[in-house]
Amino acid sequence: MQEVAVSKVVDVHSEHGALHGEHSGRSRNPVIKVHDLAWLEFDKPDLAAADVFAEAFGFHTVTRTSDNLHLRGADAGAPCVLIRRGTQTRFRGLAFKAADEADVRALAAAHNAPTRVLPESIGGLSVQLADPGSIPVTVVAGMHELPELPAQPPQVFNVGRQATRVNTTQRPQRAPATVQRLGHIVMQSTTYLETLNWYLDNLGLIVSDFLYFPGQRDRGPTMSFIRCDRGSIPTDHHTLALALGPANRYVHSAYQVSDLDALAAGGEYLSAQGYFRSWGIGRHIQGSQLFDYWRDPDGFLVEHFTDGDMFDSTLEPGWAPFTASGLAQWGPPATADFLGTRPKHARHEVVSMITALRENNEFDVKRLIGLLKVAAS
């Protein structure tokens, strides 16, 4: 299980660390330590519309059939988004990449779960589990590695007093930003603490930052930004972000692009194609990413990001209050669409809240008040 923090915290990257007795953000003895996200899985009724958006967003299509659409970034590796034709739109789960097939077998043995050989088009071995919120979680290893594709070169900048670009202009094209890779997924859980500990204990993930509802720090955190533990090898500030909320669900996923110009010009292209920008452009606080959020044709929230923080395993978690204004260092205020407070979302959110309050979980009336304060802050 997770360790208990001591009163003195060293190597903290933020202004505030844990108080005595607060969650340390890591497990004493995890079953395995995953290396990265592998892919996300979705069901969508209209694969043609999904394919058109994928191209405009900057993915490369690996597989396109009447029933399946597999998307990848330009970096070497397996497809990072697997879409299956379904009668309704839904998120089907996430997959993590293990160090090797021995780790997949070790995790399977710990849960008395079978391993399965993946389809030949992907290759490798897998074990499928479910987190405490019943979200399917697959751990995989040994997949075929697709070769690296041409990258979108970053711009050369004249910064401060240094003239690096001389006798050359800047003319970034308004074209799809080339997706390099899948960076992270954000999910919501009614059993936040139980689910957080499940990921730490089973997959060896470690927390980069904790957030807590204003005035409720004594009740513990309600959101965590969680990274892979690869020792001295730096990894993304968060591969998974988990928040307490009234439903167990996907919130958004994020895909890296080369730089701010790619993100901004790619956004201009998406806007010209009629797609809806949910929030952006700005720079986050936790993770520091430059961000731009979009809705795909099925309503899923997806993010372009660049220039995110990279941490090794030595840094301890930071602690901060959870506020809407605290989600970005600069940029426009977080929108109602991003926060899920638009009138079109209201009925669904109210139903989710009422349902959650009737069930035995961590989402009680005081937590509901805290969540409403976040959206209003």
Rank of each mutant, 00 (worst) to 15 (best):
E362W: 07
F311H: 15
N112L: 11
V302P: 02
A177V: 01
S224V: 00
A334K: 08
P136C: 10
F213G: 02
T341R: 01
L339W: 02
S208H: 05
L315F: 15
M223G: 03
R84F: 13
D296E: 12
G86W: 03
Y293R: 00
G93L: 05
T190R: 15
H23Q: 09
G308V: 02
V374H: 14
T314H: 10
A110H: 15
N202Y: 12
A108D: 01
F276V: 00
S258Y: 12
A175M: 07
A102C: 00
L125F: 06
I369W: 13
F96R: 01
A163D: 12
V139S: 06
R342I: 00
H284T: 06
P136Y: 14
L205F: 10
F42E: 01
A262W: 05
A74L: 06
L71E: 03
I122W: 14
R92Q: 15
L94G: 01
V137E: 08
R283F: 12
N360F: 05
R171W: 13
N360Y: 05
L125N: 03
P114W: 10
R217T: 10
A54V: 07
L372P: 04
V159R: 12
H144W: 15
R161L: 09
P246M: 12
H348L: 07
P321D: 06
A110N: 11
P150N: 00
G274E: 05
S258A: 14
D103P: 00
Y269V: 11
L205C: 01
L205N: 00
P317K: 03
R295N: 08
D11M: 12
R116F: 06
P30L: 01
V350Q: 04
D236L: 10
A264Q: 09
S352P: 07
F305V: 08
P343M: 07
M1A: 05
G331W: 11
S121G: 11
A38Y: 14
A376R: 04
Q155M: 11
A241V: 11
P221H: 15
L19E: 14
K366V: 13
A376I: 02
P221M: 13
C228H: 08
E349W: 12
S325E: 12
W330L: 08
L69F: 00
N248E: 04
E194D: 10
P150L: 01
P136N: 10
G370C: 09
I233A: 02
F276A: 00
V140R: 04
G282W: 08
M143K: 15
N360K: 06
G370T: 13
R181A: 11
V10T: 11
T115R: 02
P147V: 07
T191L: 06
